[in-house]
């Protein structure tokens, strides 16, 4: 979902450019402040790999809006996946819980693309092994539909109707060469 395609450029079209992404994240930040009446009790946890830089960007916008420090961390969900046995064991990514901890706080999970919902199911299991948050919310840059579990996002950057066979790739300057979201069909 997040791998950068080998660029048969014509088969992919850009659905969000850098300024679209920035505006979407700004809006998400405002919605977070509005819904939680400020952000003093919030912890952002990004899901690797691209949820982590997105969480950092949202945290930066939150501190501009609310003038307060919002803790950011990351949560690797590999060990909690329900499809572990269908693929070779994967390398693990960082789990980094901010020093403030998550007990009694509002944890906002941040991911790049919401698809089947299975990643978020795994992330919620991983979070409950880390502590007991007051609530868990979900922010995603793109919601592409095709849910397989009863999960929905609280904050969505862009609702993107897709076909099951299509792929959505999110590129972020922290990890890729540019900020962009493209939709298309991966070459087999």
């Amino acid at each position: 979902m997040t791998a950068v395609p080998a660029r048969p450029a014509d088969s992919f079209r850009e659905v969000l450019d850098a300024s679209d992404i920035s505006r979407a994240l700004t809006r998400i930040a405002h919605e977070i402040v509005e819904r939680n009446k400020g952000c003093e009790n919030i912890v952002l946890l990004g899901i690797p790999s691209r949820g982590v830089p997105l969480a950092r960007r949202i945290a930066a916008k939150l501190s501009e809006i609310d003038n307060s420090h919002v803790p950011v961390g990351s949560i690797d969900i590999t060990m909690y996946r329900d499809d572990l046995r269908l693929k070779p064991a994967r390398a693990l990514a960082h789990t980094e819980v901010p020093p403030e901890g998550i007990d009694g706080r509002v944890v906002i999970l941040v991911d790049d693309v919401l698809f089947s919902g299975r990643t978020i199911r795994a992330a919620m299991d991983a979070v409950s092994d880390l502590g007991r948050p007051q609530a868990i919310q979900l922010a995603t840059l793109v919601d592409r539909g095709h849910r397989e579990l009863p999960i929905r996002a609280d904050y969505v950057g862009k609702n993107l109707p897709t076909a099951q066979s299509e792929a959505v790739h999110v590129k972020l300057t922290e990890l890729d060469d540019q900020d962009s979201v493209v939709l298309g069909v991966d070459a087999q």
């Binding site: 060990m79 909690y80 693990l92 990514a93 789990t95 409950s128 092994d129 880390l130 502590g131």
Partner: peptide
Amino acid sequence: LQILDTAEELARVSDMPIKKMPT
């Protein structure tokens, strides 16, 4: 190195309140 890097991530489990994963 793959084993050592994986162990490094798993070492954090011992700091978690619930030292268990369903893997």
